[in-house]
Design a protein around this nucleic acid. Structure first.
Lengths: 84, 84
DNA sequence: TATATATTTAGACAAATGTCTAAATACTAT
DNA sequence: ATAGTATTTAGACATTTGTCTAAATATATA
């Protein structure tokens, strides 16, 4: 869960997750949405992947990123418990 | 919301919130629960306060901390939206 | 094979973060 | 007043984080 909180603790990464909620995207498509060098975005994608928040599929020279929300369950539980 | 995510991005601070869910506590009572110098705990309490996750009441020489979960609503909304 | 495109990896660097000790502040009680 | 307790503030320091440029890797295409 710590890894997930860490991944969520950055505006760019949260924005990436919002984008991926709508549709899968390649690394390049994601990078194009940000005013940031491609390696920086790649680094954020890596953090999200380490946390399990995204999965990847390589298709030729492209890498397509998809969101995975199951790892959010613990975080959700934590927050809901605090609110109870 | 960024401030809240930042505040949640630390195991000690999340633990403090869990403690305060059960009952209000003074800074000293909270500090006693951690294997960490008092000023470090104080610093974490400050971060939580800045994020609006706790409120304080000074009672004599003690400062009692209480949890405030309303600022978690945006975070909750964010996560639930991702899961939809 | 050579070149272009997509993406990551490596490495540098500044800024933010978490911890500590020492000192300051505020209140209590002798 | 003085001493003790509760808590924070100040400042130092190491670690982590986010960004960048340059280079490496992998694939596609002429």
């Amino acid at each position: 869960m710590n890894e997930v909180f860490k991944a969520l603790n950055d505006p760019a990464r949260r924005e990436i997750l919002k984008l991926l909620r709508k549709r899968d995207m390649t690394a390049g498509e994601i990078a194009a949405k940000f005013d940031m060098a491609a390696p920086s975005v790649s680094h954020h994608l890596d953090k999200l992947k380490q946390a399990g928040l995204v999965t990847t599929v390589k298709e030729g020279q492209y890498i397509t990123y998809s969101i995975n929300t199951t790892v959010l369950d613990d975080v959700l539980q934590f927050i809901l418990t605090l609110k109870k």
